[in-house]
């Protein structure tokens, strides 16, 4: 734990694997930028790994004022213990007020270990972060300009706002895909600060015998339009309709967990709490009931069109457009209308 430090910077842990930056730290930059600006402090990225220096520029272009680069052969590949040591040493030395991590498998392995070692607070899986004041119940002491850590809980049935006013830094993991990725600004300049890691003598208890990564087959996060199918599609055969509509709109294909479990579509396409979080310009949900876990991954879409036989389905509660009907009839009609340019005014 470090003492409350109002001048402390806002930090983002720049997750990378094998020299490739993940999307999350870049997504976090715009939010980190606005938190840092509100607090009047710098935004810094912490970039650790074997040879990672070259990634600093990208972090700067996305909004970092500073990049702390920590290179060491023992930081590649990732291990909980070595990264925990690096983060804890840096935090103790430079006393940031906020540290953010992506809520990725790696981030959720690392951040709790760091928080425990620092005896600091950590909020998991935030979907939004703001700056605000907090007065503890039964007290009249106002803690000003804290990070409000906003997250769903209870399977998405409640939204909790968490604060940490005394055992700093204030730390949170942030769900992938919920913060919009903004355009890099090539004219931005930042400071690259090389930091030493003291890892000699640190035991690395894991021996990594084998490691296999594969690229996802689809990039749902980048899609402008997503056509998603659920259990209501009825069969793998029928799921072709979803692909056809997507093809004719230049859209990506998504699926509910039920559709994935039924084998209609691969898990890479799953949208929701345990899949990908998306925010396209248009999300077309076909035969998806709209369970909280599904909505958690798509309710931020700019426009939502729901096609469902059940007018009481929860998906309609987040929809902007709705068609109550059988998707096996509605989708072919849509395809026809799109092909003919519909009103032909566009």
């Amino acid at each position: 734990m470090i003492e409350v430090n109002r001048d402390g910077e806002v930090w983002i842990f720049a997750e990378q694997e094998a020299g490739r930056l993940s999307d999350v730290p870049l997504e976090l930059m715009s939010k980190g930028r606005s938190l840092a600006d509100k607090l009047g402090v710098s935004l810094a990225a912490v970039l650790a790994g074997g040879r990672v220096r070259d990634l600093s520029e990208k972090l700067v272009r996305h909004g970092a004022d500073k990049v702390y680069v920590v290179e060491h052969e023992r930081l590649e590949p990732y291990q909980t213990n070595s990264y925990t040591r690096v983060l804890c040493d840096l935090i103790a030395e430079r006393k940031p007020q906020i540290v953010l991590y992506g809520a990725t498998p790696l981030g959720r392995d690392l951040a709790p270990r760091v928080a425990s070692a620092m005896k600091a607070g950590l909020t998991a899986d935030c979907t939004d972060l703001q700056i605000g004041d907090h007065t503890p119940p039964g007290s009249d002491q106002v803690h000003k300009n804290l990070m409000l850590q906003i997250r769903p809980a209870f399977g998405g049935n409640i939204i909790a706002t968490i604060v940490n006013y005394d055992r700093w830094p204030q730390m949170a993991t942030v769900r992938e895909g919920v913060m919009p990725l903004t355009e890099p600004d090539p004219s931005r300049r930042g400071e690259i600060i090389e930091c030493r890691a003291d890892l000699n003598g640190l035991a690395l208890p894991l021996e990594i015998l084998q490691s296999q990564r594969r690229q996802k087959k689809v990039n749902l996060k980048a899609a402008r339009i997503i056509v998603a199918g659920g259990a209501g599609v009825g069969s793998r055969e029928n799921f072709r309709l979803i692909w056809e509509l997507a093809n004719c709109l230049g859209a990506a294909v998504g699926g509910s967990r039920a559709a994935v479990d039924l084998g209609y579509v691969d898990h890479d396409h799953q949208v929701g709490q345990t899949g990908t979080t998306v925010r396209p310009a248009l999300y077309i949900a076909c035969g998806v009931s709209g369970a909280v876990q599904h909505r958690a991954g798509m309710s931020e879409s700019a426009k939502i069109l729901a096609i469902n036989t059940d007018p009481t389905a929860a998906i309609f509660s987040v929809a902007h457009y709705g068609v109550v009907g059988d998707l096996k009839e509605v989708i072919p009609r849509m395809i026809k209308a799109v092909r003919s340019g519909a009103g032909a005014k566009a």
Binding site: M1, T161, A306, S317
Partner: peptide, 30 residues
């Protein structure tokens, strides 16, 4: 270290979407 600042029950807004009939006409309009 972490304290609850506020808890909100997620209420679904509900019913504010525009409905189009499932007919050829309706879908074309959409």
């Amino acid at each position: 270290p972490t304290k609850v600042h506020r808890v909100q029950w997620v209420k679904l807004a509900g019913g504010e979407y525009r409905e189009f009939p499932a007919t050829d006409e309706g879908v074309r309009e959409l």
